[in-house]
Design a protein around this nucleic acid. Structure first.
Length: 274
DNA sequence: CGCCAGGCTTCTA
DNA sequence: TAGAAGCATGGC
């Protein structure tokens, strides 16, 4: 399976911008860049050259899983153009990483991943999630699947000690139990408006506004969601003092991702600014 | 070593 | 009801 650019899709920008935590680059001597990861219980390897991205998988998996996962049916040229109109600063952030795409991850994985992300750093988030999958996921070709909530619902927090998630372990389990019991209905969130999803997810102990917003954006494809973490709060203050998240419209979530990535890569913008 | 991390819950005034 | 403290762990 090969996709020919100029489709707006860059592996580094999309897979290493803090929206997913199970992908990593395989360092090689050649000029092409190789990434691998696991989602939907499937391992995938991708290679990117000057003008193409190759999916090393069957046609069936591409059609059934990866086309949707990488949001390949969506026109990012249009979204990018519309967002660029809104502000010169946003345009600059977009041009800095024009190959970012918003992934369509599994709802439970997104919920769980962003519970783990709280008061944490990306390097360690990846470590915890890796240990979580190795400990409790299903062994598949290429690694381990993300553990399902039914499995996690039956555990006690001390059984998660090996993943070293700290105080987050009890939150992971409470989320799994709420979902497994049907008290929080993932398919209903998927088919409802954003406000319902926010309220529903925040019924779970350990999920507040920010984790809910991330889960809704990356796991439920709610494109207007605009997670405000410490980086984004700083970025809004310094780069967009006149704006609110609503100003970014239908694709606020994508705007947020361009801004988040741009801000993380330019920490000097936020030194000593008050 | 001390500060901080894609926050949230709990305590305090 | 706003604001601060506490939380597990480890990257830097």
């Amino acid at each position: 399976m090969s996709i020919v650019t100029p489709l707006l899709f860059d592996l580094q920008q999309t897979l290493d911008c803090g929206q997913a935590f199970r992908w990593h680059e395989i360092k090689a001597a050649s000029s092409e860049k190789t990434w691998e990861g696991i989602a939907f219980k499937k391992y995938l390897r991708l290679t990117q050259t000057e003008n193409s991205i190759v999916f090393h998988c069957s046609q069936e998996d591409f059609d059934d899983i990866w086309f949707s996962y990488f949001d390949l049916g969506t026109d990012y040229y249009r979204k990018k153009a519309e967002l660029s109109e809104l502000s010169p600063v946003l345009k600059e952030a977009i041009e800095f990483a024009p190959g970012i795409r918003i992934l369509k991850q599994e709802p439970w994985e997104a919920i769980c991943s962003f519970i783990i992300s709280q008061n944490n750093n990306i390097k360690r988030i990846k470590g915890i999630i890796g240990r979580f999958c190795a400990l409790l996921g299903e062994e598949i070709e290429g690694g381990y699947s993300f553990p399902d909530f039914h499995t996690i619902a039956r555990l006690e927090p001390d059984e998660l000690a090996p993943i070293r998630a700290g105080f987050r372990s009890k939150y992971i389990i409470s989320a799994a139990r709420e979902i497994d019991s049907g008290n929080v209905d993932l398919s209903k969130i998927l088919n409802s408006g954003i406000e319902f999803g926010r309220e529903e997810l925040q019924k779970i102990r350990g999920i507040g506004p920010k984790v809910a917003e991330c889960a809704l954006l990356y796991g439920f494809h709610k494109t207007k969601c605009f997670p405000l973490d410490v980086w984004m709060k700083r970025a809004m203050q310094i780069l967009f003092p006149e704006n609110t998240p609503e100003d970014f419209g239908e694709n606020a979530g994508l705007a947020q991702q361009y801004i988040f990535h741009y801000s993380r890569m330019h920490p000097e913008l936020f030194k000593e600014e008050g």
